[in-house]
Design a binder for these strands. Structure first.
Lengths: 227, 227
DNA sequence: ACTGCTAACCTATCAGTGATAGGATGGAGC
DNA sequence: GCTCCATCCTATCACTGATAGGTTAGCAGT
């Protein structure tokens, strides 16, 4: 984070801190049940991440925004990484729902692929922070731990996506070939555009919606089975 | 970074530190000309980033590995971010060369596209750290600064790539349509696979080389002009 | 209404981080 | 041999994520 942005962030949050501390002294910030406080924290963290980035948002800034002390965060999340993962997982639950809905939707099978692709891209750009956490952050180097899709946010959504593709393939609306290869390749193709748009928003993309349309058409032409 | 990994990193570097400090006391680590020291720093940083990640490598670890004090780094790089950008730029110079070579290579124009694609993917996976720095890291939020391709590592390489595509298109070996859209879409498609392979190396990809082959074939079918 | 227990919350503090200020020094050129 | 300045150092800063251990609000049971 640039020094100026960080300073302004701290200044902004410091004044919020003063405000909240005053409230604390008068007992206006109420004690909350654990679950409610947890949601509270995630909401404030989500807002701060948008303004200052994930690395640029300190646990103190989050705590100050919520109106609790910084160590109190650790009653809800073991680490800052756990907090970000929870935030991402909460958002990805929405994508899982969306994909499941499309999979069983009463729309022509031929258009279900496009709906899933546009749903995925729309989610990624809409929930940029959650998407970054899931697929773009430099992970910690725990080479000891094994790959666990149940913990890593986004992986279950991908599994749903892959299952949707498998169904489409059985119905003859997807290219033939290894379903795993197709799913991974299609995932990569969608991810590439989302990741670059999120990582380089200032790149001279031209008109982004028409760029997305162009990319989606390419994807459909490449992966869809045209009878 | 996980606590265990960080600890081991610090332990490892601490022993290196002791070693180097002893040398310093006896004057064995020589003073170097600025340019040589700069290369020295980049080399050690590159090695450490591979083992501990970028965020997981502290400026002190780098300085200890080189055998100089931590503040001495700032004689060569204004910030840690400047150091990582320099590292990335140095690596991307290699990709620029490669693309330029392919562009003017004496090979059938029809195979130049595949050569560029495979060159790009190979570079990204080979120079993972440099690639992450250029295209995958959460950037600092300097919303004040404008987009500057001369400073951002990787952007000049992309420009060369786009020019190569424009040439191919003029020669009729690339799909018709907006060259910018094509270049950005193709970039995204390549980037997607590289980014996911780098960010999720433990994902059950199956056989990665055959996955790459599959993806490249899809790309060629989608973007190449088949007469 | 009193009591006690526990979840919720706090202050104080830690080691580690990137970065800065200002002083020491060794080797190249006269 | 002397000087000068690039090179390098120690000391220190504010801030970070995280931990230890004490305090208190508010609900359950009497």
């Amino acid at each position: 984070m640039s020094a100026s942005a960080k300073d302004s962030a701290n200044t902004a949050e410091a004044s919020e801190l003063d405000h909240v501390v005053a409230h604390r002294a008068t007992g206006i910030v109420p004690r909350l049940k654990s679950a409610a406080r947890r949601e509270d924290i995630l909401n404030h963290a989500s807002r701060l991440f948008l303004s200052y980035g994930i690395a640029g948002t300190s646990t103190r800034m989050i705590a100050n925004a919520v109106g609790i002390s910084q160590p109190s965060l650790y009653a809800h999340f073991a680490t800052k990484e756990a907090l970000t993962n929870a935030l991402s997982a909460r958002a990805f639950a929405g994508l899982e729902e969306l994909i499941a809905k499309i999979r069983s939707a009463d729309i022509p099978a031929a258009t279900r692929l496009e709906a899933m692709i546009r749903g995925y891209i729309g989610f990624a750009l809409d929930q940029g922070t959650a998407y970054r956490i899931a697929f773009m952050l430099e992970g910690p180097m725990h080479e000891d731990e094994e790959f666990n899709p149940d913990i890593l946010p986004g992986m279950q959504a991908f599994a749903g996506f892959r299952d949707g593709l498998a169904l489409l393939q059985r119905e003859g609306h997807l290219r033939e070939g290894s379903t795993d290869h197709l799913a991974q390749s299609l995932w990569a193709t969608m991810h590439g555009l989302c990741a670059l748009l999120l990582a380089r928003p200032d790149f001279p993309w031209g008109d982004v919606p028409s760029m997305i349309d162009f990319h989606v058409e390419i994807i459909l032409a490449a992966y869809q089975n045209k009878p």
